[in-house]
Simulated scan of single mutants.
Amino acid sequence: MDWMLFVIFLGACTAAGATGSMFPPDAWYRTLSKPTWTPPDWAFPVAWSYLYLALAFAGARVAPLDGAAMAMAFWALQIALNTLWTPVFFGLKRLRAALVIIVCLWLAVAGLLAALWPLDRLAFWLLSPYLIWVTIAGALNLSIVTRNPQSASA
């Protein structure tokens, strides 16, 4: 693996993750009605730390491979959507728009996994939890929209 590629991919992941510190959950979020299965606050930085490291590792492994164009396109799309979701949900408080973004993110992650399977099974398995996490986040976003119609209309 090319470590310079890893650093570049990690830089993209760090930029995406920075939106979490720029738009952290605030009093507004704490007042929203959420389902009982909402992950605890500590789970989010733990999960994202693993996922961003896995994304950087997978990207660095796969980028130089022949036939990796589709995987890299999905990698770029998912990191862009990943970066966009937090400011839309927490910054703009646009719950429905965030839901659209997270559905697109789920599709991009599924596309990434499908593109990784024939190229690099280790990258595929390292990123498989990402689809699970985005599924949970999407279900949580949907639940918050339906439980908070007054906030979701914004």
Rank of each mutant, 00 (worst) to 15 (best):
I102R: 01
A80R: 01
C104V: 12
I132P: 00
F6V: 03
A60D: 12
N141S: 04
M72N: 03
W37N: 00
S151T: 00
D66M: 09
I102S: 02
V46D: 02
A54V: 11
S21C: 10
L105V: 07
M72Y: 14
K34I: 08
I101C: 02
L107R: 09
P45I: 11
W37F: 05
P118C: 07
I144E: 07
Y50D: 04
A47T: 14
V46Q: 03
G111P: 09
T14E: 02
A152Y: 06
A80T: 14
L5C: 05
G17C: 11
W42F: 13
L113G: 01
G17N: 13
N141K: 06
A115F: 11
P45E: 05
T31E: 12
M1A: 09
G59F: 02
L127Y: 06
N141L: 01
A154C: 07
Y29L: 07
S21E: 07
A60I: 06
A60S: 14
G138I: 09
L122N: 08
S21M: 14
V46I: 14
M1Y: 12
A68N: 10
F89L: 10
Y50M: 04
T38P: 01
Q78C: 09
P35N: 03
M70L: 15
A43P: 11
V103Q: 02
A63W: 14
L84T: 15
G20V: 14
T146W: 15
